Amino acid sequence: MAAQDLLRIEGLRTSFRTSAGLVRAVDGIDLSVKRGQTLGIVGESGCGKSMLSLSIMRLVPPPGRITEGRVLLEGRDLLTLSTAEMRQVRGGQIAMIFQEPMTSLNPVHSVGKQITEAMRVHSPGSSAGQLRDEAIAALKRVRIPSPERRFDEYPHQLSGGMRQRVMIAMALACRPRLLIADEPTTALDVTVQAQILDLLRELQAETGMSIILITHDLGVVAEMADEIAVLYAGKVAERAPSRALFEDPQHPYTLGLLGSVPRLDEERDRLLAIDGSVPPPFAFPSGCRFHPRCPFSIGPCTTAQPPLRELAAGHEAACIRAPIETSLSLEDAA
C-alpha cells in the first residue's frame, strides 16, 4: 500500500447465488482512499455502489458473500478478521451513514439511546452518565440545537435534515478514521443538502477522517470529492482526480452521465439521455458491459472486457476507444 492510502480495495468480488444463476454484484474492483481525502463513487442505480460499501463493512446480506479480493485498512485485511474483530472495526475505525435517515433510525428508541448503543460497544468501561455526555457532545458537533432535549426525543419528532444529522452523529461518535456516506443527501431539499455537505466538510477538516461518498448526484460529488470512481455493472469504468474527470472524461458512460446534467454555459433544447438501462447482474453482456448502450461501440467491444488503462497521471478508463476526443459527446457519436 502507498503510505498515503488509508484503505485499499484489491480485486474485490461479491456474488449472490440465485435461481437465475450467479449474480456478480461487485466484480473485481480496485480502489484506494487516501488519508484525509474524499473518494466519490458515482453511477446509476444498480451499478453496485451500495453493495461495494456493504462489502467493505462485511455486511453483505445472505445469500451474498465476498468470494475474492482484499480490503486493506492501513495494511490490515478486513476480510481475514474474525466476527468479533470486525465488530470492533465497525463504528470504531470505519463508520457508515446508511441511505434514507427516515427509515435507518429505529422509531421505538430515543435518539440518545441509538447513539450511545454504538459507543457502549467501543467504550465498555464508560458509565451511563459518561455515555450521555459524549452523545450530547456528538449532537453538538453536528450542529443540532438544544442537544440535551434532542437526546431524549424520538426520530418521528425530528425533521429529515435533523435525522440525517443524528445519523452523522452516530457514525462519528467513536471518531472513525473512515466514513462511508451512502447517498447522504437523498430525500432532502436543496438547502438542507447544502447544510449536510458543509457539515461533512467541516467535520473532515476537524478530525482528518477520510470519506467515501456514494451518490448518483454529480453536483454533490463535484463539490465534495478529491477523486472519483465511476461504477457501471459492478466494475470501475473510470477513475480520476475530480477536476480531471469533469474536464476530460475518457469513458463513454462518464460522457453520458455528464451530458445528462444541465449546464448554465450551454444552450440545449433537451438534455442528453443514455439509451437503455443498466443490465441486471445475472445477464451482463459479453465484452464491455456498456457496449449495448454505447454509440462509440465497435466489434471488439462485444467480445473482450477492457481493463482499466492509465491514460494520464492518476486517470484510468476501461475503454478500448480511449483516449476519446473531449469535444465529442454521445450525441455526436450517435
Rank of each mutant, 00 (worst) to 15 (best):
L12R: 01
C294V: 10
S126Y: 15
M224L: 12
F290K: 03
V23D: 11
L158T: 07
R58A: 05
M162K: 03
S123V: 10
T215L: 04
E85C: 09
A135K: 02
I94K: 01
G91D: 01
Q4E: 11
A283V: 15
E316C: 12
S210Q: 05
R87W: 09
P241R: 02
P262A: 00
A194M: 05
M86D: 01
R24V: 12
H156S: 11
D269P: 08
G208L: 12
T186Y: 12
L179K: 01
S32E: 15
Q130S: 12
L81E: 08
G43K: 03
A322H: 03
A205L: 07
R76E: 12
Q93E: 10
G287F: 03
E316M: 14
P155A: 04
T191P: 05
I168Q: 00
I168R: 01
A233N: 02
I115E: 01
I9Q: 02
H251P: 06
P101R: 08
T303Y: 08
L158Q: 03
H109N: 11
E227T: 05
A313Y: 13
V142Q: 00
Q99P: 14
G92I: 02
V190I: 08
M119W: 08
V89C: 06
Q4N: 13
V33R: 00
Q157P: 09
H216R: 04
A84F: 11
G276T: 11
R8D: 15
P252T: 02
G234V: 15
V230E: 02
P280R: 14
D27M: 09
D182W: 01
A334E: 12
Q250D: 01
